[in-house]
Structures are given as C-alpha cells and as structure tokens.
Design a binder for these strands. Structure first.
Length: 950
RNA sequence: GCGGGGGUGGCCGAGGGGUCAAAGGCGUCGGACUUAAGAUCCGAUGGGCGUAGGCCCUGCGCGGGUUCGAACCCCGCCCCCCGCACCA
C-alpha cells in the first residue's frame, strides 16, 4: 500500500494538480489550517484538525471549485531560541529529545542555531504532510520571523497599519526579570520547576511605627486587614531602612529591589535587624488599631516586603504561628512579650458555611497541622480557606458599609479605597522565589517600552462583533459563543517581546521589540495569496528589500500605481498586478480549521485584526475541534502513547491513518478518539476493497428488477447524505456512510441478487463509491480509478457524484425492508414453532380491506385524532374486534402504524420476486399467496404477512 | 469561582419527546466455509418468559418534576475535560 501511495503522491506532484492560481472564471475556495510551531514533529492531534481542511479542500475541488490550500510554518517566540541555547549549553535533556528524533551526534550541535531547528522541522512537517497525501500548494509555503524577509516585511506592514489606526499603544507591563542579565525570563529561560509562574499583584498594607515609618506587609487578602492582631517579622533577617517615594520604610532588601524595578523611587539609607523591631507597636492604617510586631520564622524575606500581617482567625499560617509562639516561653521571655502575646484574641471577620468563627483553626485541625513547619499541609489549608472565603464567605459587621457582601464582590473596591487613604499600595511579586537557569534570583520588573494591542477599544470590539454576523462557526453555536464571550472580555494584549530572548519580526518603530507570537499570526492568510511570488522572489526579479508599505498597500488595498511599484521592487507591472489579483480573487478565507484551544486567543485576535485591516473580508467559516485521544487516553510522550504524523504514516500508511482520523469524531468541541484498531483494520481493508471492486466491476446482468431500483435508491440516498456531511465536515458521519453503510448496501445487494447485480447500475455505483471516498482515501481511490477502471484522469479532479433525486424512492426502500422483516419473522417463527422438518412456508398477505382501513386510520392519526372510537369508524364493523388492540396501541404511539401503507399488490410482487432469496436465506421452500385457508391467515396485516409453517 | 464542552450498553460512539433495549463500529459468542487457523459471510449479544413473529422487568451520571409517553424538556445535585491570558 505504501508504494501505491508514493506513486500517486509523485504523480500529483509532477502534474502540479494542487497548485492553484487565480482564475476569475471559476468559483474559488480558500482553505487554511493554522501554521504549526516548528520545534518538533506534528502528531495525530495536529493531523486531525489539518485533515478537516484537507478533506474540505479535496471535496470542494471535486465539486468544481478552484481550491487553494497552502501551508506555512510558525517559528516566532521563545521555545526554539531557548532550545537552541540549551543545545549550545549541552543540556542533556534537549540532546535526548533530538536523539529520540534520530539525529546523529555529529548533527546535534548544529541545533545550537535556531535556524537549524526551523529548517529541519519545516522540512519534516512538509514531508510528513506530503506523505499523508495532502493536496497542498507548496509553492506558497513559508515560515515566520525575520529569518524570512518577505514575510517579515508583511508583518511590519501590518503593524504599521495598526499603529496608524491607533490600535497599538504603549504601556507598562510586569515581567519576570533577571537583574543580573537585565533581561526578561520567560518559561524557557528557567529550570522546569519554575515554568508557568508569572507575576502576581499583591497589596502592601502600610502599617506605621509611632514615628510614621512605614512597616509594609504584603498580602493577597487585603480585606482581612480588619482582623489583624499583630504583624510578623523574621527576627533573624536584616531589613533595610529606605526612602520610598518620599516616605521612610522598613522592608526586606529584596523587597526594596522589587520596588525599585517597579517605578518607585527607592533609596536605602540604613539597615536594621528584624529582632530590633519585635515588641514594638504599629498602627493599622485602616482601623487605626495599635498592634504588636512579633517574631515568626516562616516569614521569607525573599517574598514581597519580607513582613506580613497576622490574621489568625482566617489564615492557617497565622493561627499556627501564634499557637507556636504562645508555647515558646524562651522567645517570649527573650523579647519580653509574654503579656502581649497571651492577650491576643483572633478577630472573626468572615462567615463561612460549614466553619466556625475561626475557619483557620478548623483547617489547622482538619489537616492535622502541628507547627509552622508543616508547610505542605499549611499550603493546602490556606488554599481551601482562601477559596471558600473568597467565593462564598459573607463579610461580618466589622466591615461597616461592606457587611453582608462577599469578598469576591468587594475586594477591588476595598483596594481602591485603601490606596486613596494612603493605607496601601500594590506591588508585583512572584508567588515563590524564582531563579533563572544561571541561578540568578529573579524579580518582577515593570517594563515601560511595552506595546499593546488595544483590544479594549470599544469601537474595535464593535467592528469585530459586527463581522461575526456574517461568519459561520462549527460547531454552532458552541464555538461562536466562546468567541463572542472573548471579544467582550478581552483587554489590552502585550504584543511585543524583548529581542534578546525571542525570535520574530521587529516592530517597525522599535528595534528592541519583536511582535509576540500570537500577534504576528492574525491575518497572515492574506500573505498566502502572494507568497509564491515573494518566496520565490529571484524568479520574478523581485527585490525583497524594496517591499515597503506602498507595495503592500497596493496589493491589499489597490492603492498606488502598480507601474511605479513594479519599478521600485524590480519586477514587471504585470507581476505586481497579478499579486493584487491573487489577493482579490482568493481573499477572504472560506474555511479555517482549528483547535478549540485557539478560540479564546488566536481566532478572536484574527477576527479583530481582520476587522481592522481587511474590512469586509473576514474569514467566512471557522471550524473548531477538540483534542484527539489515543484509544481513549490522552496522548503524552511520557506515557509512551504518543504518535507523530511520521510514525502513523510508517505504521499504517496515509489512507488508513486518514480513515481512522476521519472516524475519530464529528465536528464538536468534545475530544475525538483515534482508535488504532480502526487504523490497523483499514490496512487490511483497503487492499481488499480494491480487489472487491476489481472482481465486480463490469459484471452482472442487463435485467432491471425491483431490487435494482432499491439499490439505486439506497446508493443515491447515501450520496446525498454524504454530500451534506462533507459540507458540514462531520468526518465520522462521512466514513459511516461512504464506507460502512455503502459496504452493507453492496453486500446485501449481492446476496439479494444471488451475486447477480445489474451490470450498469452496479458498476456505476462502484465508480461513485470510489469518488465519495476519494477525499478520505485518495491514494486507494486513484489506484482503483486507474488500475481497475482504466481511467486516465485523476479521480482527485473528477466531479463528486450528484445524487439522482428521482431515484431515491422511499416506497421502494420500504418494500425491501418489508422483505427483510418477513425473513426475520420467518426465522423467529421457525425457531419457536419447533416443527421437526418444515416442508414449506406459506406467506399470506392481509385481507384487502385492511389496507384501506389502515390508510384511513393513519390519516386520522396524522390529523391528531386520538379517540379510539372515532378511529374505529374507519374499520368495517365486522372486523373491529379483530383490530381493536392494534388501534389502541396506535393511539398511544402513532408510529406503530407503518410510515407508508402500500398496496397489497406491491407487497405481493415484492415478496414474489424475493421468493428465491427468501428460500436461500432460510433453506425451506416458500409460497407467497394472497389468501389461504388457515387460522393464522387472519393475523396478517399490511406490512406484516401471516406465516404458516407446514 | 467565571466562560465553554460533556457524562448513553463490555469498549468507541449516534440519537435531543413516541418507530428506543437505543444506529454504526469494535469486542465477544454461535453458525457457514476451511484439513485447520486466519480472512470472509450469516446470526446472536441487558435480564426473564414464550410450541408463533411477541410479552414483562431493568436501563442512557444522581434525585425530583412536566407529559398519555422522557436518554431526549424543566429544576436541583455530583463528576470529568478545556480556557481564564501575554504561552505556543
């Protein structure tokens, strides 16, 4: 099979049948899949979404459309740069990854260069997709970042335009920062255990010593300032005395450094040991209450200000620290604080269902916490209390005007108010101390040369929403709801990154910043329309350096003089005009297939950017899908159940893999399931399919029978339905119909005709069968098309069959169902009748009056009649008793009566024609009669003949 | 907590008021074919009853409700997955 696949891939490539150019005389379809990030191979999950685009492209091509399906690759961002650096540093983990890909020891050092990653994995992706039989126009392929100058120019143009429209604005932004290297520290620049930890904003409450010196305490829970009984300081730590924005503060040294990086004016003037402050009193700036400073070992000088406030009623840490201290006579004596400590009473602030007035105590007991060193349990307890109190707790009277509300509700208001009172400020920290990979301690810096996409802009939001009205989503409405919600909720997005830690396109007006990776991927589908010219610039004499705003303005907006532009960039006016035509013709995208995870970011961004840059040309249809499970399990490298596209191709070949992916699910946001047993089975089934068709193509009789009409009806029905499913991209339904249902129909037809199909009808059906399977299994289809049918054309370019509506005949199908049902009934009767050796079976049709009577009953039921008496009117009086039961049950469930009541004649001829078939099936001679002298004969009904075994 | 999706038979999955003991696939069992195995074809596959094609019970996460009738509609609850951002 693999060699057959290779053969067709080569033929498609040589004949360039998937290369598409603008052709104003033909309707077009433009299909895309998000460009994948090239730091590794694609897997079954990528392939699943990608195949939606591929199936659609192939289907539409067979529907007569001029179809463009291009594919680019994404290299913007940090992971590749970070991986390259790790290879340079000899990181064994990264070397292992590359070894697992099969790269040699000699080649691995080359991966120290990010470009090597890009080149290698772009090539691997392309090869994988090629081997999967994708109908991609590879001339238009490209990768991102300034390593690809023409694309780089395109992104710069895009940002120039956005800035002109006021949609890119300057702002500040907190980042995790290495103060030694003076560089932001992203996930990829840290040891793995620190990945995913970002800056968090905390509130600093400004307690004050009698002389006004600020003793700042950091907290996530500023609302609990009402319940502070004391503040904690670490007696062993040396703090600094600093002038902060004109006030005198005592703070940990690390805290002071943070503030300095966060746009505060900080001057260190002195140092002071924590112990010196123990026993002193500070004033709560919110309540005005005086509280003592007490010693606690759990206070970490590297977190926030290095001083915390104590709310024992609601914070497990504080509760246990106070307990510890009360028992610690030595310390109490040392600082002379026995009296103070023993008099401390927790203050209850928040009422929480299921907890006492001191939830912290409850949690400490529940988790069995013995001392402030039980850190793990304390963390869990804290989290539990925090969540409960935050979402469900009610503030008590002590909160005055805020009483009765929830923390969630009032938190922001409180913070604002505390700030206005100069009782608090805010500060950014990392929740735990972080180091970069060089071992430098990181802090949070607020960077000022940061640029934002102004997604908060109301007008922009409106424009984005407006385009939704003419955008389709699959699945509807789930995907649409997700996007709508995101548009409402999205605020400004930091869209640039420091060039020292990333890869991308530089902002046209700020060389130090790259456009961030999600932000350079919003309208690039437009680039595909001209990519074959720009990516092969020499061929067209295009000088890439000269591609400027004017050029792109012409291509995308039709502004300017093509002749002048042509001269400037070194090519002909014709080429420049052709680029404009390509864009005009292809844009917008008709279908974009994506993963559900991108709905809340990439998809929404793209909608925003299209609204701003290409008004009226937004993407017409988005289709989103869930993850792909592997045999019901999440795929993961560590579990060892991870299948890349390349691995799948090697194991099953393209068509079997494509089939199993199609079978994995329909269009929904639920997870799909790739079943390896389906792929395994298809490896056997596809060659068998070829042989089956070879055996039957052109065989059969010229006779035209009722059963041939049935077959035509079924086949055309399948074609009609599969056509709809292709349009909807319900791939599982496609395969269910075009494969399983078709097989069943074909097999039954052969059995029914005693292996004597109608030649013309059957052969035509086989051709159509191959066609409707072509998008899913194109290689096998081409093979049959050429080698079995002897055609010269590509089936990939053949017209998708049109269902012949006039041949779809429900009545004919129902009569065949009648035959099947009769066979089933005979089987059942034979099983139960216990006749030793049945000699013959007599099938007796119902009396004539029953057909008319049932028809009348059916009509009345359809009109809504539910009165048994009224229905009985339709039955001749002498028979009423006989059918009373069935009428009663029909009233309860009208569908008990067959959908169509045919004529006795139809039923008679259907059974008569099927006589031989029935005999073959049950192995007993059969007689079909219109009436018979036997007690059973009376039980015959329309659609249900009486059966007598003799 | 918020937003989105979901919980159906041994497994994967359709179905979104009556034709539903629930399509289709996989698996399992029985039969045909075969020297045999495999493949293929046919049949069965919740439980019980039935010398007549049928009947009864249980059943679509849990508990209520609406309805002549609920897997499907409504209310409450439990559980699972994804996102909650500057990361691709």
């Amino acid at each position: 099979m693999q060699s057959i696949e290779e053969k067709w891939q080569k033929r498609w490539e040589e004949t360039r049948i998937f290369e598409a150019d603008a052709d104003p005389n033909r309707p077009k379809i433009f299909v895309t899949f998000p460009y994948p990030y090239v730091n590794g191979d694609g897997h079954l999950g990528h392939l699943y979404s990608q195949l939606h685009a591929e199936f659609y492209a192939r289907y539409k091509r067979m529907k007569g459309f001029n179809v463009l399906f291009p594919q680019g690759f994404h290299a913007t961002g940090q992971p590749i740069v970070a991986a390259a650096r790790r290879i340079r540093e000899g990181d064994p983990k990264y070397i292992r990854i590359l070894k697992a890909y099969g790269f040699s020891d000699e080649e691995i050092p080359e991966f120290g260069d990010p470009k090597k990653w890009i080149d290698t994995f772009v090539a691997r992706w392309k090869s994988a997709l090629h081997k999967m039989g994708f109908s991609i126009d590879w001339r238009r392929s490209f990768h991102t970042t300034e390593l690809n100058p023409p694309y780089d120019k395109f992104v710069r143009w895009q940002y120039t335009k956005l800035r002109e429209k006021g949609l890119v604005v300057r702002g500040t932004h907190p980042v995790v920062w290495c103060p030694v290297e003076k560089i932001p520290v992203g996930d990829h620049d840290r040891p793995d255990e620190y990945a995913g930890i970002g800056p968090e904003e905390i509130v600093v409450i400004k307690f004050r010593l009698p002389d006004g010196t600020v003793v700042p305490t950091g907290t996530y829970r500023p609302e609990t300032v009402y319940g502070v009984t004391n503040i904690w300081i670490n007696p062993e730590v040396e703090y600094v005395v600093a002038e902060v924005d004109g006030e005198r503060w005592i703070i940990s040294e690390w805290g002071a450094k943070h503030l300095k990086e966060q746009l505060h004016d900080v001057k260190i003037i002195d140092r002071i040991k924590g112990a010196e402050l123990v026993g002193k009193t500070v004033k709560n700036p919110v309540t005005g209450k005086e509280v003592p400073i007490l010693p606690a070992s759990f206070v970490d000088p590297d977190v926030a200000t290095g001083i915390v406030m104590s709310v024992p009623a609601h914070a497990p840490y504080d509760w246990i620290a106070l307990e510890d201290l009360k028992k610690d006579e030595e310390t109490l004596k040392k600082y002379g604080i026995e009296e103070i400590v023993k008099s401390i009473e927790p203050i209850s602030l928040i009422e929480v269902e299921g907890y006492s007035e001191f939830p912290a105590r409850d949690a400490v007991e529940k988790y069995g916490i013995k001392s402030q060193r039980d850190e793990e349990a304390l963390e869990r307890a804290t989290e539990e209390i925090y969540k409960k109190e935050f979402y469900t707790g009610k503030l008590k009277e002590i909160f005055g005007e805020y009483a009765g509300r929830t923390v969630q509700d009032v938190k922001d208001e409180l913070i604002e108010r505390f700030k206005e009172m100069n009782a608090a400020t805010t500060m950014w920290i990392t929740p735990i101390p972080i180091e970069d990979r060089a071992g430098h301690k990181c802090l949070v810096k607020i960077v000022e040369n940061q640029w934002f996409l102004k997604y908060s802009d109301e007008k922009w939001k409106e424009m984005a929403k407006e385009t939704l009205k003419t955008t389709e989503f699959d699945p509807e409405p789930d995907a649409r709801k997700a996007v709508e919600h995101t548009i409402d909720w999205l605020h400004d997005w930091a869209c640039t990154r420091d060039v020292r830690s990333s890869l991308g396109t530089r902002l046209p007006w700020d060389d130090s910043q790259y456009v961030e990776s999600l932000s350079d991927s919003t309208v690039y589908m437009a680039y595909y329309t001209i990519a074959h010219f720009l990516q092969n610039a020499e061929e067209y004499g295009i000088n890439v350096d000269a591609l400027d705003e004017e050029f792109f303005d012409y291509v995308f907006y039709g502004k300017g003089d093509p002749a002048k532009i042509a001269e400037k960039i070194g090519t002909s006016r014709e080429i420049v005009e052709r680029m404009r035509q390509e864009f005009e013709y292809w844009y917008p995208v008709d279908l974009r297939s994506t993963g559900k995870d991108l709905l809340q970011n990439h998809v929404t961004f793209s909608i925003f950017h299209h609204a701003a840059l290409f008004p009226g040309k937004h993407i017409r249809r988005w289709t989103a899908n869930g993850w792909v499970l592997l045999n019901g399990q999440k795929m993961s490298k560590s579990k060892g159940n991870f299948i890349t596209i390349i691995m799948a191709q090697e194991r099953w070949g393209a068509d079997a893999t494509r089939f199993a992916e199609a079978y994995a699910g329909n269009v929904t946001l639920e997870d799909a399931n790739f079943d390896t047993s389906v792929a395994d089975a298809m490896v056997e089934e596809l060659p068998r399919w070829i042989e089956f068709i070879r055996r039957w193509y052109g065989k059969g009789t010229a006779e035209y029978r009722n059963i041939d009409r049935w077959f035509e009806s079924k086949v055309n029905r399948i074609i009609r339905e599969v056509d709809e499913e292709y349009e909807k991209l319900n791939t599982r339904n496609i395969v269910n119909l075009a494969w399983f249902e078709f097989w069943r129909t074909v097999k039954y037809y052969l059995r029914r005709t005693g292996d004597n199909p109608n030649r013309e009808i059957f052969s035509k059906a086989l051709e159509n069968w191959v066609k409707i399977m072509t998008p899913v299994t194109p290689h096998t289809a081409e093979e049959i098309w050429h080698e079995v049918f002897g055609r010269d054309s590509f089936v990939s370019l053949e017209r998708f069959p049109e269902a012949e509506e006039e041949k779809i005949d429900k009545r004919v199908e129902q009569l065949e169902e009648f035959v099947q049902r009769t066979v089933d009934d005979i089987r059942e009767v034979l099983r139960l009748a216990k006749v030793e050796e049945p000699k013959r079976i007599v099938i007796i049709l119902g009396d004539d009056w029953k057909y008319d009577a049932f028809k009348r009953v059916k009509e009345l039921l359809a009109e809504g009649e539910r009165n048994v008496g009224a229905l009985m009117e339709a039955i001749p009086p002498e028979y009423r008793r006989e059918v009373a039961k069935i009428i009663t049950s029909a009233v309860k469930n009208p569908k008990r009566i067959p959908e169509i009541i045919g004529t006795k004649e139809d039923e008679f001829s259907a059974l008569s024609e099927a006589k031989e078939f029935i005999e073959r099936e049950i192995g007993v001679p059969v007689e079909v009669v219109k009436s018979y002298d036997h007690p059973k004969a009376r039980s015959a009904l329309p659609f249900k003949p009486a059966i007598v075994v003799e």
